[in-house]
Each structure stands twice: as C-alpha cells, then as structure tokens.
Design a protein around this nucleic acid. Structure first.
Lengths: 348, 348
DNA sequence: TTGTAAGCGTTATCAC
DNA sequence: GTGATAACGCTTACAA
C-alpha cells in the first residue's frame, strides 16, 4: 500500500513535463513519441488518476447522494435499484445515506451538500419541515425530492399519486361488496401518512360511505406495528370486512393477526397493501397491493437530477407517477391462481 | 448555487490569515478574539468545509465502498443494512456499487480503488477469479471480502459456513423422514454455488444416503430460474420428497411450481431455502431456511475494515459466521403457528 | 498567537 | 508541441 504514482512520477520517468503527461492522459493533441513515452511510464508504474485531485480542480465529484428514509423498506430499495444503474450509466457513483426517517439526519445530509462531496442529491424525506425547505432553497447543489413538497417549493420533485392509489384500492374493495373498510395508517405527520389518510377519507365520501373514526387505526409503517394496530382495531370493530393498509409491511402484519384471530382472508376480511413490494407477491395469501411506482419514481428522480447536472438551468419540474392496482389473493381469493405469482421479483 | 465561500473569503472578512481561519475551524489554540471574528464571518457567510480539498490534503476521503453482486438480492441487502450504520457511526460515507455479478464490473471496482475516492472497500464477489486475486494483492486500499477466497489469500475475509448450513438443513429433512432429498442449486462456478453443491453431497454421504445425480438440478439464484429448475426436476423425479434450495429466491420459485403441480408442502414435498431473508418469513407456507448470517457477515466486514482503517497493520483475518436453521411451515407444517412469523422484519 | 508559504495531484493558461 | 506555472481549497511547518 505504498504511495501510488502521480503524474510527477510519470513525468520524471518519461522525461517530460507534468503538463505533457496530463495532456496525454486526457487525449489532447500530442506528438506520437511523447504519447508513447508517457503511456509506457504510466503502464509500468500502474498509474491511476487521483479522483480527489481531479475533483478539486474540476469542481465535480461524479458522485450523487441518495438519502433514503430507511434501508429496510423494500419500497425505498425499489427506488435504489432503479437509481443505481441510471447513475452508473452516466458515470456517477452513488453515495447512500440512510436517515432512519430522523429529521435531524436529513437536515445533516442537506447541510453536508455544502461540503461538495457530491454533485447532487436525491432525497426521499418522510417528513418535510420548515428547515427542510429553507435548506433546499439554499442548497449549493441540485436536489431532487421524491415525495410531495408544498406548492411553490422551487425544487425538482417526483411524487406518487397516493390519492388515486388509495381510491383504486377502496373502489376495488367496494366493488367486492365490502362496506366496512378500515384504514391502517402510519403516523399522520409523515408525508405518506397524511396523504394516504386524507385520500381514504375522500375515497369513502365519493362512494357515499360514511367516515367512521372507529375504522381508522394509526400505527407505524412497520410490520409489527401494523399487527398491533390491526389487533386493536379488531378488538374495537370485530365485524370489519376490509383493511386498507398504508403499506405492505403493515398489511403483512395484518395478515399475521387475522390468521391468529381465525379470520379468513379474503372471505372474512379483505386486505390491501401499498407499494406493491416483492413481499406482496411472496406472502400468503398473496397480497393485493397498490403500486405507487417506487421503481418509476426512483428512475424519474435520477433522470431529473442528471438533466440538471448536465447543465439544464430550467424551471423546477414536477413528475407524478400514476399508481397501479395489483390484484392478488388477499382480496380476489380464495381461488389462488399460480400465475399471479412470480411476476415481480427480478434480482438474485 | 453561486460559488460557496472558502477560507479565503472568511479570512478577508475577518481580517485574518487563512491559517488562522483553518486553526479556528479545527479547534486549535487561538486567541479568543480571533476565534470570535472567524466564527462570526463563517456564520454570516454560511461557510461549509470543502470535503474534496480536505481529502486531497489529508489523503483520507472518509468514504468506504461496498460492492455487492446484486442490489435485488435480499441477502446482500441484509448486509447493507448492517454495514451502513457501522460506517456511519464511524464517520464514513458509503459508496454503493452494484456489480450485477459481472466479473468485469468487480474488477473495475477493484481497479478504481486506485483513484483513491474511498479509503477502503467491502466486496462480496459471486465468483473469484485469478484477476480478482491479483488485484487484491495489488490493492492500494484495505479490502474486506465477504465470501470465501482461496487459502493463503492475504486479505480480510468474512465467510459463511455453507457446509454446516447445508448439513443443518439436510439433517433436518432426514430427521423428518425424507429420503429423496433433491438439491436445487445456482451455477457451480460461483462461490456459493460450488460450496453449497459439495456440502449437499457431503451431507448426504454422512447420512449414508446415496448421491443421485438425478436429484441435482442446476439453475440460477433467481426465483424464476428456481421455478424452472424445479419443474425440470419434478418431470424427471416425480417422487422427490424434499427440496434443498440454494437460496430463498429459488425456494420461492419452487413453491410456485409445487403449488401448480398440486404437490402439498410440506406433506408431499418439504422445502428448505437458504439465507433466511425477509421473504422466507413472508411466504406461504412460510419457508424453513438456513440463515447464513448475512447481517452478521456485513457487520463483521464493516468492523474489520474500520479496524484496518484505524491503522491496524495486522495479519489478514478470517471471520466465519455460523449458520442457523429457522424451521418454518415448509418443512414443519402443516400446523402453522402464527408466532413463527413476524420475527424477522425490522425496517419500515 | 499569527502570518507566510509549501504542498496535496490535477488541469489549464501561458509563453516559448 | 511542450514546459513552466498558477490555480482548486485546505492543512501545516516554520518564521515572525
């Protein structure tokens, strides 16, 4: 692990100036003879360009940061899976931050943009505070936010349409004859929690169903929390006939509890998840889920950022990705059709 | 997005030299008055240290790369989930590479270590070639390999014990009375494929069972490939009574096919997966799976690397993580006990 | 305690 | 074409 060779080392060995070395290395017009000498020296020394020095000079790091709320959530991983190859193809490295949905950590990431160790940032905050907005406005590098930001925020923004998404699900449940449709949500002070909660209310009202507070249970976006929430709900409303869960993890928790409680899914209680993650296709019964287009959002975000990095000094853009309902056994059963499975996975 | 302030800007504004600014910023002994002036100027200007310039000077980037074979494989994600916080706590950023198990990409990553954009690398190659070994030997920064490397390779190495892992599974199946235990494996030229294949053979022989080539089916480590492999196997050996699958994705594919074929799991065919990913707990029937300690391996790798980065110029170390069998419904059913579920998930 | 100046490894602008 | 030389933004002797 000795000190690597620099252009100085090469220059000495090749008997030319560092300027010439740099020229050769960058393919600028140079006499053939010089080229040969430099290349030979570089080869022999096993020279590799120092990325840090280049960055200092060029003011570009060829790195992009992706700050996700939670490395454990398959929905964010789906984004990551799309972001990674897009950036890679464009010659950018990916710096991964996990903020664990802690606001302070997100602010940290935003602040650290000033350190200029990345050329841009894709961030998917669970909550958007005043501080977020201030820092966004002052950001010294382009940022793309995945998730809704307040109107008028001057930032590239990719969002899901959870309103339509929830409506797809609720309409589906309604069409199946369900009338006591409960909502198991995450914290209401999160962006998705708030959006999905109000979308549920709206969807019910559009169907002419009453909004019944007893049918709403707030937990958190984890499986165990979901299970707990559903247990509470069941105790309170034993005759619930459908669960609209704010994400797939909650829905899996719901399945656990329903099974324990001896409820049949979907005969007694139909269950819908959101995000349409790999888990939805793998679970039993396989889970009907609303895809909010995590993958597409990731891809769109990466592309917006690249565009910006390529110098586009355009107006901030808003991309909205349409939702899609994947109907599976947890609502459409009991007949289970094998061909509904196996369509979602991809990776090893 | 104007040019940010530098220590020069601050120095001017505070009426001191850049050296003083640097001193204050680094907490070196300085007169109170100077400290105040510098801090005030820095505050007003919204100064943030330039990480690139610091790195060039200090020769440390405070970045570590993790090169994983496949962002889509939950086993690698489990590693990532452990690696991330360990590095973060130590003040390192995580640069994520996905090599898609392409050897050339892995070599690229190894090569790019010479660019010195990271202080170290954790890599989990699916195949280990001569080139890998050469580049490892010549690497200009510390590397930790997750996965087996040949004896004598001078590199920190964290490995799973797939031999014991496979044995746990095969013994379990044997104890359940299964005698026609098939192996559904991935490519034999991969590190895990080779290890798991020979471990299967050994486990059988130790149990006094014959090794029957008909019972071995090679596919790939994906769900769909797993399904295909199992379909072929079933056509050839209809009376197989147990499937030892080389990973959970393959096992999920197996479940798909068995269901289609009208086989009951586990009554007709018992199924065991490997890696014990989240999917194993979520699937139906829930999947008995051998944990090879992905999470622990990730953590161990991160810790080894940090130790090395902190200057330990010690001998290369080998850490082996013990496997653990998680018995679930796909072998122990049909009785399904709800408390077997919900124990594995964690993230949102 | 403070300022001057020399790097860190590049790229890029000059004269020659 | 090529070689000095000056940045890029920072840290750190060394002098004052």
């Amino acid at each position: 692990m000795a000190d690597g060779p620099t252009i100085n080392t090469i220059a000495e060995r090749a008997g030319v100036s560092i300027a010439s070395v740099s020229r050769v290395l960058n393919g600028l017009p140079t006499r053939q003879d010089t080229v040969r000498k430099v290349m030979a020296a570089a080869d022999e020394l096993g020279y590799v360009r120092n990325a840090v020095a280049r960055s200092l000079k060029s003011r570009r790091t060829h790195q992009v940061a992706f700050a996700m709320a939670d490395v454990g959530n398959p929905a964010y991983l789906a984004m990551l899976r799309e972001i990674q190859p897009v950036l890679k193809a464009a010659g950018y490295r990916l710096v991964l931050h996990s903020t664990d949905a802690v606001v302070a950590d997100e602010i940290d990431v935003l602040h650290s943009l000033g350190e200029r160790y990345v050329d841009g940032l894709i961030m998917s905050p669970l909550r958007v505070t005043e501080t977020h907005l201030e820092m966004l406005a002052a950001a010294r590098a382009p940022v793309v936010i995945i998730g809704s930001v307040p109107e008028g925020t001057r930032v590239d923004n990719v969002r899901a349409d959870s309103r339509t998404g929830v409506r797809l699900a609720v309409d589906h449940l309604y069409a199946l004859g369900r009338r006591r449709i409960a909502m198991i949500n995450g914290p209401l002070d999160t962006v998705p929690g708030a959006a999905r909660g109000s979308a549920y209310r709206e969807a019910l009202s559009d169907l002419g169903l009453p909004y019944d507070e007893d049918l709403v249970q707030i937990g958190d976006f984890y499986r165990r929390e979901g299970a707990r929430a559903v247990a509470e709900l069941l105790a309170r409303v034993p005759d619930v006939d459908a669960l609209m869960c704010a994400n797939d993890l909650i829905a899996l928790g719901a399945l656990d509890v329903l099974r324990c409680a001896g409820k049949r899914v979907p005969q007694d209680v139909a269950v819908v998840g959101m995000d349409d993650t790999d888990l939805a296709a793998a679970s039993w019964p396989s889970l009907t889920s609303v895809s909010l287009g995590s993958a597409e959002r990731g891809k769109a975000a990466a592309e917006l950022l690249l565009e910006r990095l390529r110098g586009g000094d355009r107006e901030p853009r808003l991309v909205t990705v349409p939702p899609r309902l994947s109907v599976r056994a947890s609502t459409a059963g009991p007949a289970y059709r094998a061909d509904e499975r196996g369509g979602k996975e991809g990776g090893r």
